[in-house]
Design a protein around this nucleic acid. Structure first.
Lengths: 260, 260
DNA sequence: AATTTAATTCCATTATATGGAATTTCAACA
DNA sequence: TGTTGAAATTCCATATAATGGAATTAAATT
């Protein structure tokens, strides 16, 4: 519910994020209440969005849903991310080397977004998908990303989202989180065990651009049945190696025009 | 460059579609010219979009790119599509039964959008991805979708996009296209051979909701080295079977609230 | 068929986006 | 390191585009 220079955009974001929050079909009345907008104003707005395919209406119920145009833009945005394009082949190698799924994430708006994922063939796998948003305070990738944010930003996240207990080992205390982030900065990688999902662990390392800024995180994740302390070390080393290769590729001005 | 009730939304769509048209990073000046907007107006707009993660700026150049928030919304939109969710398991079966990749498409804004895709393990595969837009006049899926549109809509597509020759066998004549669409309505499925991509063929069938409206197309596609007339018939029969099963599942009011 | 509830349209009003001009920033080159 | 030029950014009086209360229509519900 931020306030930017263009009100209509703020409104659009609030509206679409309502779907992100788990609602999949909403009526005009429901939205009118949620957005605190008169139905007339909102209706005009929704019809406009529908005409562009940003929203679509159910054939039976007349409820509003996210439209197909969003899929197109999402695909373009994913495609257009330099880090993603560059990381892709390395992620395949990483999966082959480790046997676990690789995840590429970026920090965005107090949360962490998965922008690429390479699966394994293991019968036991985790459920993650591109575009998925996760809490910034829990899980290896999240911690690897926020560990390198300025202190104020971390506090802003905590203030905004709190530190909800998502799983057995979620860090729910600010002091503990800060200590953990310091440890991550120290050792250069993060790991987690059942911080977000029961039965899952993760390892992740930051990816830096040529200025040293952390622009993403490279992670591995798997089920606890394939977990051990030794593996964490081994996987961390693997991630560190590939993250540094991705960083190098990122800063090499090749044919791609996407300077992050 | 449509005109809806809310100007800002029209503008947003024009802007984001600039990226869809193959540009991956643009300057304020370039956009200002393209959108025919004064830089001051545009600048305010862009900054607003950036603040919401709809756009992001390169760290080096100051060019504008699609932002990560779009990935999140795209993922939600894909997720939230009843037909996609329902079709998914059937598509896996279809891939197993046929050995070729399955594609689920919908018609949107004079084009065809891929909303789901199930790959094969074949070393030779096609390059298709979720969110990809394709021309509405060429390829099996496209034809299966537009064959059931009202005549005016087809003419609107032709007027808007023309019938560009995309590959060896692209239909570039309106009369021929109409005849082909009539044939497709007749036999209930479409097929194509090198209409969009060299070395590729496809077969597709419409998927209908309980009202009989065509809400998507289910297709198979593969390389010409695995093509024959017999296979087309065989694959068409497979697609028809699964499309009808998807249609049934669509009209069965289950737990899912997405009535298309 | 009547009643309730939700969606849609209308239009005078006002808040909001507008854009020309001034200012600042940045990069390239001397 | 200073100079120039081409961008981006800010400012603010103005016009215009979004606003929302009230009336109308459509769709459920009894």
């Amino acid at each position: 519910m931020e306030n930017s220079a263009v009100k209509t955009i703020d409104r659009l974001v609030d509206l679409l994020d309502y779907f992100t929050q788990g609602h999949d079909a909403v009526s005009l009345a429901e939205l009118s209440e949620y957005l605190e907008l008169p139905k007339s104003t909102l209706h005009r707005f929704l019809v406009s969005l529908e005409s562009h395919g940003i929203l679509r209406r159910g054939a039976n119920d007349k409820k509003w849903r996210p439209g197909y145009h969003l899929i197109v833009w999402g695909s373009i945005a994913a495609e257009n991310s330099a880090i993603r394009e560059i990381a892709k082949p390395f992620m395949s190698e990483l999966v082959t080397a480790s046997g676990e799924m690789a995840i590429l994430t970026v920090y965005h708006a107090h949360e962490v977004v998965c922008i690429e994922m390479t699966e394994t063939n293991h019968p036991v796998r985790l459920n993650m998908k591109v575009g998925e948003q996760r809490a910034a305070h829990a899980g290896a990738s999240s911690k690897a990303l926020i560990a390198f944010l300025p202190e104020e930003e971390i506090m802003a996240i905590v203030k905004d989202k709190g530190l909800p207990k998502l799983c057995t080992n979620t860090i729910t205390d600010v002091a503990a989180l800060k200590a953990e982030l310091a440890r991550i900065r120290e050792q250069g990688y993060s790991h987690s065990l059942e911080e977000t999902d029961p039965g899952a662990w993760g390892v992740a390392t930051p990816i830096r651009d040529w200025t040293g800024r952390v622009v993403g995180a490279l992670g591995l994740a798997g089920p606890t049945l394939r977990y051990s302390d030794d593996k964490v070390k081994e996987y961390a080393a693997l991630c560190l190696g590939y993250a540094s290769r991705i960083a190098t590729a990122l800063s090499t001005p090749g044919k791609n025009s996407n300077n992050q």
